[in-house]
Design a protein around this nucleic acid. Structure first.
Lengths: 151, 151
DNA sequence: GTTCGTGCAAATACTTTGCACGTAT
DNA sequence: ATACGTGCAAAGTATTTGCACGAAC
């Protein structure tokens, strides 16, 4: 628990620093959103963020507005999700690069990691595209299927 | 051109067969949608589908309704797309398995293919997950960046 | 005290649906 | 004749925005 506390502190310091760098404040609402996402440990829709906050005090509009801003500051990442709404999670630069298993039925997402060598080959592929003159920012490797619940 | 004509014919025959198998008809609207997507050669939003049809006769509601149905019949695939709306393309079983380069600025998507060996490793990864009891349907490997236009 | 963030409510955008009519079988 | 598909307009959701107030610098 002490350990997690420490990680949390670092998370918030980092978030505060990045927002400051972008000329924004790390307000109570923004902190609450980061907190919810950190403790969920998986990508959440904005509805879920609203639901999961302990003291239901965030206004919907604040969650929408802040999620956009936190993405711009590089603290959150927005995941496309064919089904239902978009989902948000802490940025790779914070929780580390990883990939997603997406349930086709319920839309839920779980993280998983990929063998080193595979990751490297994907990076090589990116390099190829750069050679062809495209500017590359990153990649997404998702697996789709049904989660334990739904299958 | 004769060649393309032939491919088109096959496409429509295939689509008709699949719809029939699902108890649906290959109506004029549905054919128009498939046609637009086939000639675009890249994933389109429903707005784009509406725009690109030669004789603007499709109703918006028909495009929405039919896109859902064509997905169910296995003719179209719906792509999540963090930015803007969802996009649709012909199913992998029709145009072959491939991957997407997604422009972070304009949201546009281009297809690209991936070396055989990489594809195989991803399949091996899927097999791993199946061993862990998940049911796996497929994967997505996208590269994000900026297209020639936007960079 | 000025700038930035907030909640609320209104506005906008997106998608789905009900219904009466048309078309294909 | 029947089942299925269509357009239109209305309803339903989701998301964004304007504004006046409050909090942080």
């Amino acid at each position: 628990m002490a350990k997690n506390k420490k990680i949390d502190d670092e998370l918030h310091l980092l978030a505060a620093r990045r927002l400051r760098a972008a000329g924004m404040r790390y307000s109570k609402s923004r902190k609450a959103i980061v907190e919810v996402l950190a403790s969920a440990g998986r990508p959440l829709t904005l509805d879920e963020v609203l639901d999961f906050q302990s003291d239901k005090t965030l206004a919907q509009s604040s969650v929408y507005r802040n999620s956009t801003e936190l993405v711009e500051a590089g603290i959150l990442k927005c995941l496309a999700s064919g089904k239902d709404h978009n989902r948000f999670e802490l940025d790779d630069s914070i929780i580390g690069h990883h990939h997603h298993f997406v349930c086709l039925d319920c839309g839920d997402i779980e993280d998983f990691e990929v063998p080193e060598y595979l990751e490297k080959e994907i990076l090589a592929l990116e390099a190829e595209l750069v050679k062809k003159g495209l500017s590359v920012e990153g990649h997404t490797l998702d697996i789709q299927g049904r989660c334990h619940q739904c299958s």
